[in-house]
Nucleic acid binder design. Structure first.
Lengths: 230, 230
DNA sequence: TCAAAAGTGTTTGCAATACACCCATGC
DNA sequence: GCATGGGTGTATTGCAAACACTTTTGA
């Protein structure tokens, strides 16, 4: 046990990130192949230690940038995980963030502590070390709830997207199917999407109109008491 | 900056609790009067430092027991707060829990670090130090969301309660009024309350039937896919 | 001309809302 | 009897679910 200058008990503190992506109509998580001990060589959540001179969220951003050349992302804290034996040999408490990234807006590259980085479908996760499985499950549960009352799904889609993409995202997340006409109406009634002139290209069927999320309008409505609810 | 045996950067870690109670039809928070520096003598959230040998939630329970002789409570983690300058002179990251206590099931007494402890209505909070205001606001926001999809309101009421108590709790939390008959039907339709033979006593009007929350039934329904929604 | 998805229209039933009204109890 | 809250009944409305149907495009 160690104490700091003021005699307070101290312990190591890390950040880990659960990075979600939506690829091939499947919800995926970004894992890195550890190039450090312990658990050298296993697929795990990207993470790092918090510096004395940065806010926790800054640390999370820094770690995330090390693994993805992120340009655009949504990030929130999930919580702290600190069971005594979650990490071998020493006490490490970790503060976990979850992030959503848009396709094409990043570039995956393993960071300094990793030899590889890749997307894994949530249904085909490899073995992950420590309590990372528990953390991923918690992040997923949180995401499901968040989707119900915040329009954050757009952070997993391209800036311009057809409605069906959004529907498939909700379907992947909740594991159910929705009726297309009804889904469409439900979303459109909220008035958060701007229809664009642009259309899908190169699809083997009638091309769909593209939409973009109108954040400004959402913030505006929210101020007036509007509550998003899916 | 300090490092541990393995060379990792370490910093002080505390737990703080936002303890909610429902008294006089008002939502309240338990604050303690600090008997330690810094901010000696101000009203603040009860908290303490995490021991090397306990899980975070254990630490939160311990701290909570120091201030209330708790018998029955609901507790969940809110998250970590760690802005660099949130605490004077040294870096202290705090992990916050929020708790709900039933009336009569506890005994408030200031813990070792406090000279006093008292309930404060959320609308009449005193000045609180550090980032405690921000924390309380975050806890309240979380509570509002939780109430929508988890039947946790019962943790703020006596074991046996009349329906109006529950309604007043929701009204206090959301700052709106509900139609009594409709509220009643909405709740009863969920099938989570067991009507008791017992009735209110000593009220200056027709006495109301008492109910209790049937946790077993709720768990049962939840397993079958039932999702509570208010 | 067929497959596949885009997109519109319409019917139905449930559930939230609003509100009228009777019941029981203490003062 | 009257104030206060307990508790029931019911009409109305809006919306979500179900599904039939037309349109557009590439192969």
């Amino acid at each position: 046990m160690q104490k700091n200058q003021k005699g307070k008990i101290i312990q190591a503190l890390s950040v880990d990130s659960v990075i979600f992506g939506f690829e091939e109509a499947k919800l995926k998580v970004l894992l890195i192949k550890r190039a450090i001990k312990p658990e050298y060589g296993t697929w795990a959540l990207p993470g790092g230690f918090i510096k004395y001179s940065e806010d926790i969220s800054e640390a999370a951003y820094r770690v995330l940038k090390e693994h993805t050349g992120v340009q655009d992302l949504y990030m929130e804290q999930l919580g702290a995980f600190g069971d005594i034996d979650r990490f071998p040999d020493e006490r490490v408490i970790t503060i976990v963030y979850y992030a959503l990234i848009k396709p094409g807006k990043y570039e995956i590259n393993p960071g300094p502590d990793a030899t590889d980085a890749a997307w894994f479908s949530l249904k085909e996760l490899p073995r992950v070390p420590f309590d990372h499985k528990k953390i991923i499950d918690a992040a997923l549960a949180r995401l499901r709830r968040q989707f119900k009352y915040k329009p954050i799904g757009f952070n997993l889609l391209a800036d311009k997207f057809p409605l069906l993409d959004l529907q498939e995202l909700y379907e992947a997340l909740y594991g159910v199917e929705f009726d297309k006409p009804n889904f469409r109406r439900k979303i459109m009634k909220m008035n958060l999407l701007v229809p664009l002139e642009e259309k899908q290209q190169g699809v083997p069927h009638r091309s769909a109109r593209l939409f973009k999320f109108d954040k400004e309008r959402y913030d505006n409505l929210t101020e007036k008491g509007f509550i998003f609810e899916f």
